[in-house]
Simulated scan of single mutants.
Amino acid sequence: MKKIYLILILAGTLLLDACEPKTKKDEDSYLQPISDRYLGQKPPGLTPIAFAPGIVSTEEYFEDGNTFSPDLKEYYFVRHGGKYEKPTSMVIRYENGNWGDEVETDIKYPVFSKDGNTIYRGNKYKVRTDSGWSEFKSMGSPFTDKIIMGITVSNSGTFFFDEFVFDEFERPDTVGAISYSRRVNGEYQPRQKLGEEINTGAWIAHPYIAPDESYLLWNVKREDGYGDSDIYVSFQENNGSWTLAINMGDKINTTHGESGPKVTPDEKYLFFWRGYERVEEDGSSFWVGSPYWVDAKVIENLRPKQ
């Protein structure tokens, strides 16, 4: 009889455990230890610092891109300058318990699906196959009638993306806008442009949507900014509306340009690019800049109090 009671208790425990909702800690259990993530770099606090100095962030080159794969075992970035006459995509992989050296890759500015099996870029996508990655395919309507530089997808499959119109000389307008498209019954709905609380300013671009769609990050040049483009955040209300855009402050934004915000797949750190246009004595100019990172608590610290 005691054995029967024990079996019933164990069965009940397993049932309760199966019914227990998964936490973020559970979802992260498959990742490598914190000390081995992020190229083994010491994580920052609430003040941004250059990411991986001497490895990714250098004085010699221009680096941007900043993308970790969902399992945090691949880091993608783009390097330009010096021996890299054209922007060159690089990847650093975590294998056999160690991070390797950077190597060139044909995967540029990837945006991964949650499961890591799809890569989005602009209005195209490619899928993982047994032999590698497929060729890029069109995402179809409503993503193909305008130029998209930055695209981001939530866990529910909703896409947020910027859009630009090009003139006859193939120059983009300097305004831009952020729109979204939800999937309903297997089909993506016509894009919906977000309101003026987000779409105000110039060079509105590079959105990042939180996995649960609770906040949106993007860069834009506004009159209340600190100089060039700044990073802003807006929080989604319970009724689906968005709060007025909030400049992320002088710790994140400077007189230089800040752009391309995104949060690591474990939602612990905010990455972005910071740089400026350097003008030489002969009048020539070129852009310099590097990726920066900061504790993602800086986002929640800006959430309006209820």
Rank of each mutant, 00 (worst) to 15 (best):
I4E: 09
I4D: 07
I7F: 07
A11N: 07
T13L: 15
L15H: 01
E20N: 12
D28L: 00
S29H: 05
Y30M: 11
P33Q: 05
R37L: 07
L39P: 02
P43W: 02
G45S: 03
L46K: 10
I49S: 12
A50S: 12
F51Y: 08
F51S: 02
A52L: 02
T67S: 12
D71R: 02
E74T: 14
Y76W: 04
G82V: 06
Y84S: 03
V91C: 11
Y94I: 08
W99E: 08
D101M: 07
V103T: 11
V103K: 10
E104Y: 07
K108M: 15
P110K: 10
V111K: 08
V111Q: 11
S113K: 07
R121C: 13
R128S: 09
D130M: 13
G132K: 04
S134A: 09
F136K: 06
S141E: 14
P142K: 01
I147S: 11
G150M: 06
T152A: 06
S154W: 05
S154F: 04
N155D: 14
T158I: 05
F159L: 06
F161K: 03
F161D: 05
F169W: 11
E170H: 13
E170I: 05
D173Q: 06
V175N: 08
V175C: 09
S179E: 08
V184H: 10
P190I: 06
L194D: 05
G195C: 08
E197L: 13
T200P: 09
A205L: 10
P207T: 13
D212L: 11
L217P: 04
R222P: 06
G225C: 10
S229A: 08
V233E: 02
F235V: 04
S241L: 01
T243V: 02
I246M: 00
N247A: 01
D250F: 00
T254Y: 00
G257L: 00
E258Q: 12
P261V: 01
E267P: 00
K268T: 10
D282R: 11
F286Q: 14
W287N: 15
W287H: 14
K305E: 15
K305V: 14
Q306T: 13
